[in-house]
Amino acid sequence: MGYGRRRFERKGLGNATFGLNITSMTDMFTIMLVFLLQTFSTSDVQIIPEKDVRLPTSTVENNPVQTLKISLSKTELKVEGKLVTKLKNGYFEKSDIDPNDKNFLPAFFAELETTLKNTKFDFVKDGKILLQADSSLSYETLRRVMYTSSMAGFPKLKIATVMGDGN
C-alpha cells in the first residue's frame, strides 16, 4: 500500500447553528444614543450657520426665535440667503455706500424694504432681525448693516452666536 497523499476533507458542520454576539454592538449604540440625545436641540427654530461665517462664541443661552435672517461674511451680505452686496476683505466697497451718509447702504435698504412690503409674516413686520456676522468683522462694517436695517424698519436686532465660554 503506497503512501499516497490523503485528500483534505473539511469536516462538515451539518446543521449546526451559531449565535451572533451583539452585546458589544448594543453597548456602542447605547453610548451613541446618549450622546445624540444630549446634542438633540429642543429649539423651535433651527439656524444653519452660513458656510463662510464664523460666529462669535457667547455665554448667552437664549434659543433663536423667528426673525428675518441676515448673514454677513467677509465677502457677502445676504438677506434670507439672497445675495445683496459683496464685500472686500470685510469692508463694503465705496460704491455700495451712500455718498451723503457713510453708514447707509442703499442696495441693502431697498432689499429690506421690498421684503417688508411683500411679507406675510408677523415677525418680519415686527422688525425683528437676526444678524449672523463673522466674528472677525469690525464694528465699522457691522454699524452700516445695523444702521441701514434700523432705517428700513428693523430696529430689533439680535446677534447670532454659538454656545461657548466667550473666549
Binding site: S41, S58, N62, P64, K158, A160
Partner: peptide, 18 residues
C-alpha cells in the same frame, strides 16, 4: 433611533444675544 437623532441633531447650536 440613531439615524433619526443623527439627522435631527444640531451639532453647532446657534444662540442669540438677547
Amino acid at each position: 433611533l440613531v439615524p433619526v437623532l443623527l439627522i435631527s441633531s444640531a451639532f453647532v447650536q446657534v444662540m442669540m444675544v438677547e
